[in-house]
Design a protein around this nucleic acid. Structure first.
Length: 113
RNA sequence: CAAGUAAAUCAGAUAGUCGCAUGCUUUUGCAUGAGGAAAGUCCGAACUCCAUAGGACAGGAUGCUGGGUAACACCCAGUGGGGGCAACCCUAAGGAUAGUGCAACAGAAAUAGACCGCCCGGAAGUUUGCCGGGUAAGGAUGGAAAGGUGAGGUAAGAGCUCACCAGCAGCUAGGCGACUAGCUGGCUCUGUAAACCCCAUCUGGAGCAAGACCAAGCAGGGACUUAAAAAGGCGGUUGUCCGUCCGCCGUCCCGUAGGUAGGUCGCUAAAGGUUAUUGGCAACAAUAACUGUAGAUAGAUGACUAUCAAAUACAGAAUUCGGCUUAUAGAUUUGCUUGUAUC
RNA sequence: CGGGAUGUGGCGCAGCAUGGUAGCGCACAAGUCUGGGGGACUUGGGGUCGCUGGUUCAAGUCCAGUCAUCCCGA
């Protein structure tokens, strides 16, 4: 994942939160909106309520990894934000990976073969 | 062997596949990549800015002694006090004779004192109570009751007298010093300063989002100098005042200058680490050799597999160091003390 | 990086500057007034004062450390 494929400024995040659509399951919430680029931009957000720095880092890395492994399956041209919920604190990598794919299917962003 | 006590160390390793950050290479790779507390932000510094960091007051901090350090509320060595059979541990430990305040309830009385009791005398008089005085030994209250214990002494008592102990003042000796030991003296002084306060020492403020450079948009600002001469006014700092210094109270210029978004630097070599020698009880210092170790900016360490008995704790760098405090699975090593058993 | 506030019955708050009795309102329980309800009145129960140490004769109050929650500034 190159650096221009991630959401950076607070302005970009606000645009997705305010104008985008959202889906949720047990572990994650996903916000997304169409952008004007040829590629996707992804942001990850983990609230301070989930735990201390070590726990938040671990959750974010797992979310990043599970998107990276499945990024080829997503449609291009969207800004996406994944937001961790309280249940993500105590799960393993497989559950988070399946949660990412599940949200992609709900939103219709997974390519149909 | 058991119990205890003091200290030190490790904080998964190795191999493979995919992936991230930085640097070097140039299209392929190679190297490096979180902690003992990175944490809490409780102290101390470096560094940067505030015109200067000078004086006074206020405020704040520290508080047994000596040393170490860039500095410290830290560390080392000692002194006094407290706890433990001991090894050892704890200790905000200056001043109550500078002054002010406070000490509920109980109790006769709380910073000064006769309720009961004991003793003497008086009048009345059957026991007995009443009146006047002496007395701090005993009782009761309290955290604290006018030094404690014993003997003498006395009407009963009392440092009234003596011995020992505690405390106070002075002298002598030892120690750099906190203090210790001895002698002498008058006989005895409540506690609280983590109440105000006094004394001694230290202390300007803000913080890397400090600050420097480049610079879209937007907008009014910027530059320079003397004609007169001194005084005054206003402004420049973030407790107040004083002192020093600077600017303004005139002319000239206009996409120039300042500067927001954004970017670059600050940004990692450091009061650095390891080893040896020397000095020192030690903390630490000096010298020599070797070594070169994260630097992001939505913010880099993850996922999976195999082996080791198990991989499990607390926990993630954000300017950098020195400490303190708090959290911590599992395991290892060493010194010392006490007890038990055997030789 | 820096500054500040709060924690006391089930809920909302006093009491801490000046240390000795933990209190107020609502809620809860019982009783009285009423034919009954509502309402009023009377009585009662319920507190490791966030936690751990220290100072003091004595700590909710003073001091130190710690945990949690909330707010503000650059």
């Amino acid at each position: 994942m190159y650096s221009n494929e991630s959401l950076k400024s607070n302005k970009d995040f606000r645009r997705v939160y305010d104008k985008g659509k959202s889906f949720a399951n047990k572990y994650l919430v996903m916000f997304y909106i169409k952008n004007n680029f040829e590629f996707n931009r992804v942001g990850f957000s983990i609230s301070k309520k989930l735990g201390k720095a070590v726990i938040r880092n671990k959750i974010k890395r797992r979310m990043k990894e599970s998107y990276r492994l499945n990024s080829c399956k997503f449609e291009k041209g969207y800004d996406i934000i994944f937001l961790a919920r309280m249940n993500a604190k105590s799960t393993d990598f497989d559950k988070i990976e399946s949660a990412v794919l599940h949200l992609g299917k709900l939103a219709g962003l997974i390519k149909k073969r």
